[in-house]
Amino acid sequence: MNNPLGPEEAPPAPLHDPWSDRPDWSGRPDGPPWPDVSPWPARSVPTDRREQLYAPAAPAPGWGWDGWEPEPEPAPAVPPPRAAESAESGARDGDAWAEPDDDVYLAVHATPEFQRVRRRYRRFVVPAALAFLAWYLSYVVAATVAPELMGRRVAGPVNVALLAGLGQFATTFLLTWAYARHARLRRDPAALDLRWDIAMRTRRADGYVDSRSNPPREPGR
């Protein structure tokens, strides 16, 4: 992809993600001053799942995704210089804003697992939001445009307006409950799996030593 800013407007150095937890060592070729210690806690992943993660994944078309090799070369303990890295990945050559883990995220974005999480989120949130906004706006508009209708008595002193107001409270509580339930049952497990995948893959993209050259401890063994 071309640099969106054009060559002459490009900043002199890649702007480091200002709140990334990974410091920008591009200005220091000697790399970070700490020993190579795995930053991630060991977690057991079922073998078939791990195969699935590290199998050469289907490439995301157009992004130069060339899959994961099953066994990495002895990885350097320090991140390689930024320029060499983007040249290797080939996906975002010359892009001043590229980051080493971009390809990981793109690959995950293309996976059916992520697309399913995204679809489930949108399929719930968009209709729910349209419904409650329409319900709220019609309530406010009715109060300003048709006060006679709203003032019609239903039972004793209780009129349409009071019922509609209490209805707003009730629908808010109901939708909150439904959303929390939907998210907990339909999205959370898949999202956690994906987060774990990305954490593992990002380490490799960063050039940290892969867990399999330093295998995770299996609990209970």
Binding site: W63, R92, Y105, H109, F114, V117, R118, Y121, R187, L192
Partner: peptide
């Protein structure tokens, strides 16, 4: 930048790389 968008979507919905 479609890459940034994809990255934002993945991070937003999975929590990968969250502080």
């Amino acid at each position: 930048d479609p890459v940034r968008h994809a990255k934002t979507e993945v991070r937003a919905l999975t929590g990968a790389g969250a502080a």
